[in-house]
Structures are given as structure tokens and as C-alpha cells.
Design a protein around this nucleic acid. Structure first.
Lengths: 229, 229
DNA sequence: GCAAAAGTGTTGAACTTACACCCATGT
DNA sequence: ACATGGGTGTAAGTTCAACACTTTTGC
């Protein structure tokens, strides 16, 4: 039974993670300052190699946990990179994932011990191999996908204000929205639960905090509802 | 330089193609009746293994050409499947592509010599391994993507009528559209060139033929236009 | 002449957009 | 008291969905 595939070549299989975060001001990316070979000293995405005992999703989760301490994170495969010389040291196929994490929940000790730093999405340094392409592709995908799926809430704290949510969509789409209209659109979906607390950092008046109601969203989806920003 | 990655395992890397076509009535998929092991006798997607000398896009193009004789086809990677036991014969990672082809241009001799047959998308038989999941995933993606990108024209002959275009979108989305409104929406985009010919098979009156103007589309995109059905 | 599909026109409802305006509060 | 960002209201413009209607032709 195991003889059919003998003549075909085998490849090293890597995983790279494009990790997005939002600090309530800017969209950020978590990058590694490499103190290991190859390309020691440069910046890169967090990555690793696939093991015999796991699938790619599991490997991506393992790698992300190692860096951030976070489990149960929004993590999605988006492309597999396979240029023959993408990695000059060896033929490596790399499957890329993007992760959306809540910065405030990540483990600072872990990220620091890996030499990881947050970069503004508009100020990404030169990265190794094809990692800059991976970042661009991932950003394009979340920009498009965030319009039709409630991805945004993965990047915000559990409790957030409407202006914070608006700011997030503005930095993702690199546009300005009218605050009155943005609010109306979001509210008309009935997906947010208003809390009795206010957030007072951002303004003198303070803004009410809300939570995303995932159960309600799942129910609405069943009945044909389309999320759209 | 080549010693860094030594301890990591290597994997067989396959490519599988979900090949869509439209016969002006139904959305179809090109499947192989396997007369080879493993799983001889069952149906599967067309696939193959990655070579040392090529990347995945090139491999997918090669495999598609072998089956259909077609070059320069709309072909896009959409997911990499890596379950540990997805192929019981060996650990194989498979990157899946979907192709949109014009049935009338494919090489019948080639497809027949590979034992390939067209199946209605709603009547797909049981396929080997995880190929049924691949088909479902690919269909979901083209359904979504065809709303915002002019994918449909890849499936139609060079010259087509508005009712044919409408029928295509109806079978992709499994809905019925109002013909007056569909026509208005398409026409308002100014992307079709009306020809002086009529198509007389489909009806007594006959319908005018049109061509998709790719150059105009590219120009409009530059200036911020959004295609949407 | 009638059935059937191609193609046009009209209308009210729904949704967007722009913008004026009020509210609460720290300084 | 006033500047600042939070939050509400409204009117005009645009798009959308439903459907009535006309056209052409093979039988």
C-alpha cells in the first residue's frame, strides 16, 4: 500500500504567522528580530516547521502559542508559498496564516523573550525571504474580509466603545467614516450589547462600552443575515 | 548554509485541481474516474505531485494542461490540506487550486483519455480522501468571489448573451434573479461590448451576443470602481 | 394567433450620505 | 466658558425590487 508515491520528491514544510493587533490607535504587526540563523539580525514573521504528528492548523496554533501565550485565537490559513528559491538555504514550502489577537491579552514575557516587537502596519521594515509579500497578501485579505465578517472584534478588547470600533475599521481600510453614519450602521445590526460602564480615557465625556454578541451573530447567520460594514 | 533545517521532516507535496465549467445550463465539475491505484475505480479530482524544479502555480498549470489541453486558464490556489491521515497510503500535503474553464475550448480527446467526466455541481459522487471537502470549499469561494470579481466570464464562451450570463449567476448562487433588474445592473457597469450577432438557439426571438471588455475593467479598477453583482 | 423568451419602463420603498445640532465633562 | 469628542436627528439623493408592459419569432 505504501509504494505508489516512492518516486516523488519530499519537501520541508514551514508555517509562517502574520500576527495582527490593534492598540486602539493603529493596526500593528508582531515581528521577530532574529537572533538566529539564517538571516540573523533581520526581521521576520514568526514561523516554524511542520511535524509528522500534526496538521498545519495545529502547527500554526502551536507556533502562535509559543510566541504569545495565547490559545483559541482567530487563526486562518491564507496562502502557500512555494517559489523554488524563496529560501536560499533550502527548498522550503511555507503555508502562511494570519492571526488576529487582542494585544492586551498577549504574554509580554513570551513575546519579549523571542525578541518580538509590534510594528505599525504602515511602517513594516524589510523582512526576510518573501515575508513582505505575505504581509501584503494577509493585509489585503483582512481588509476585504473585515467588510463581510465580524473580524474586527477579534482585535478589540472584550469591552470596547463605538469610536474605538470605528477607528479600527478606519485604519484597516485607510479611510475616514462619518461617525453618525458608522454608528447607525453598526447599531442597526443589533449585534452589540451595551454595558452600563463608560470608558473615560479617550474623551472628556466618556463613551459607553459594548460587547460583541457572538451567539446572536451565529443565530442571525443561520437565518440568512449578511454582516456588512 | 544548508545545515539549519536538517532535523525537520520532509513531506510529499501534491496539487489537486477543482475544475469548474458551465454548459449554459448547469455548473459542472470535471472529475477523474480512476483506473489507477490507490482507490482504483472511485472518482477523484485531477492531481499530481510537485517537482523539485517548479513552484505550486506551475505544477497546477502543468496538471491542468495535461488534462484539458488548456493553457492560460483562470487558476487560483485556495487551500492546503494537511490532515495527518488524509491519504491513507502516505503522509501527503495537498495544495488545492480551482480552475474556471470554457468547456467549449477544452480538448475532448485529452479529457477522455484520462477518464474524465463532467458532473453537475449538485450531483457530485463520493470522491477519494478529502476531495469532497475541497469541492465544497472551492464552490463556497467562487460563490463569494463571483459577487465582487468578474469570474463569471471565465466560464462563458467568448461571446455570450445576457440571459446566459444571468443563468450562470443563478446556478452559482442557487437563486433566481429578476431578468429586468439583472440586465440593468450588468449594463450599468459598461463592461460589455454589444455585438451585431444574435444567438438563436436559446429562444425564438434570439438574444444579442456580448463580449466582456477586460481592458475597460482593468482601467475602471484603477480608478476605484467596484464590480458587484 | 399564441406561447416563450428577450428586452424596456415605472414606481414606491429602502437605504445612503451629508451635515446640522445637542450633550457631557475636564481644564 | 469653551473645546472636545460622544451621540442624535433629518432631509435629499440614490439605489433596489417588484412587476407591468412591449417586441420578436417559431410553431
Amino acid at each position: 500500500m505504501s509504494g505508489f508515491y516512492q518516486p516523488h520528491p519530499r519537501f520541508l514544510q514551514a508555517i509562517d504567522c502574520v500576527i495582527f493587533g490593534f492598540d486602539l490607535e493603529k493596526l500593528k504587526l508582531l515581528l521577530i528580530h532574529r537572533d538566529f540563523e539564517p538571516q540573523k539580525g533581520k526581521y521576520s514573521l514568526m514561523g516554524g516547521f511542520l511535524k509528522e504528528s500534526e496538521n498545519l492548523d495545529e502547527a500554526a496554533g502551536r507556533i502562535l502559542e509559543k510566541l504569545t501565550g495565547l490559545d483559541n485565537v482567530y487563526l486562518e490559513q491564507f496562502n502557500t508559498y512555494s517559489e523554488v528559491n524563496r529560501d536560499p538555504a533550502a527548498r522550503v514550502i511555507s503555508t502562511a496564516y494570519y492571526a488576529l489577537i487582542k494585544i492586551d491579552e498577549s504574554d509580554r514575557d513570551k513575546t519579549q523573550s523571542h525578541g518580538a516587537e509590534w510594528f505599525d502596519i504602515n511602517e513594516i521594515p524589510e523582512l526576510i525571504f518573501d515575508h513582505n509579500s505575505m504581509v501584503e497578501n494577509a493585509f489585503d485579505i483582512i481588509r476585504h474580509k473585515s467588510k463581510f465578517y465580524p473580524l474586527g472584534f477579534e482585535l478589540l478588547p472584550e469591552k470596547f466603545t463605538i469610536p474605538q470600533l470605528q477607528k479600527l475599521y478606519e485604519v484597516i481600510n485607510q479611510v475616514k467614516f462619518d461617525n453618525a453614519n458608522f454608528r447607525k450602521k453598526i447599531m442597526s445590526m443589533n449585534l452589540l450589547v451595551k454595558l452600563d460602564e463608560k470608558e473615560k480615557e479617550g474623551s472628556k465625556k466618556g463613551a459607553f462600552l459594548y460587547q460583541f454578541d457572538k451567539e446572536k451573530y451565529d443565530k442571525l447567520i443561520q437565518s440568512g443575515f449578511l454582516f456588512e460594514i
